[in-house]
Amino acid sequence: MVNTKVKLCGIEIDNPVIPASGTFGFGYEFAEIYDINKLGTFSFKGTTKDPRFGNPTPRIAETPMGMLNSVGLQNPGVDKVIAEELPKLAKVFNKPVMANVSGFSIDDYAYTCERIDKEAQVGWIEVNISCPNVHGGGMSFGTDAKNAAAVTKAVKAVTTKPIIIKLTPNVTDIAEIARAVESEGADGVSLINTLSGMRISLAKKKPILKNVTGGLSGPCVFPVALRCVWQVYNAVKIPIVGMGGVSSAEDVIEMMLAGATAVEVGAANLIDPYACKKIIDDFAQVMEKYHINSLEEIIGGAH
């Protein structure tokens, strides 16, 4: 019998598999086809202070082994999330959930985190300081160590739940940003958010995405994500949630060997709605194959 349990910022989860924010909504679409209580937890749709429609369409483009999105944080706003989405979520998911929060000013982040922190079902708050889609917003916090630290400090001051800062890979040195947020009390970091990219339609001779650029995700980013997790593991002591192109139980184990305590699965959910369920079901066999008794024991094992 293999052990898939891990402890993420003091909360034990049955397995390290966490659907990533923006690929799992508030869980209902997936709860229609399998019991999502099988998951370690999931990170719900990025929530902001005010409701947002997001960017104009088209906001999806295909790439070799991946995709670009420029959704731009469409969400109903924190008030509606608390009033409508969380009560619905509680009916299909009975574990602590990871809240995902974005903002466009330090006050935004603090306001939204303070409100979401009071919700009983919220286990962790993942703070997205790295979404590359929003003009004049998120990007600047995540690409500058001082701004990243300032958001962390402001959010920590008004919350009680573990704060996981989600980092962007679109920087020169991701380890520097990780150290900066750790120094202001972040309880964990998650990485990587999407890589900035674009495609041009030959037929129209124009960018495919109306927003011009979007975030690249899918298996094509996995080696980049793995490298970032490796570097951040060497730089900080707080737990790392690894993500970026993870599509199989083998990928999860590779991420954990690089230093991840838990692993988020993003684009794979969109291609195969059963992706996370399959990964969890495959653990026993894959762990046996590689002589792994406990996933917790392999964290950072490749260092």
Binding site: T23, G25, T57, R59, I208, P273
Partner: peptide, 22 residues
Amino acid sequence: EERMGCGFGACMGCSCKTKYGN
């Protein structure tokens, strides 16, 4: 018609505005 990511409502890639909301 719109460019879609998932096709089942998870990614919000194909949203549009209507008089009855997004």
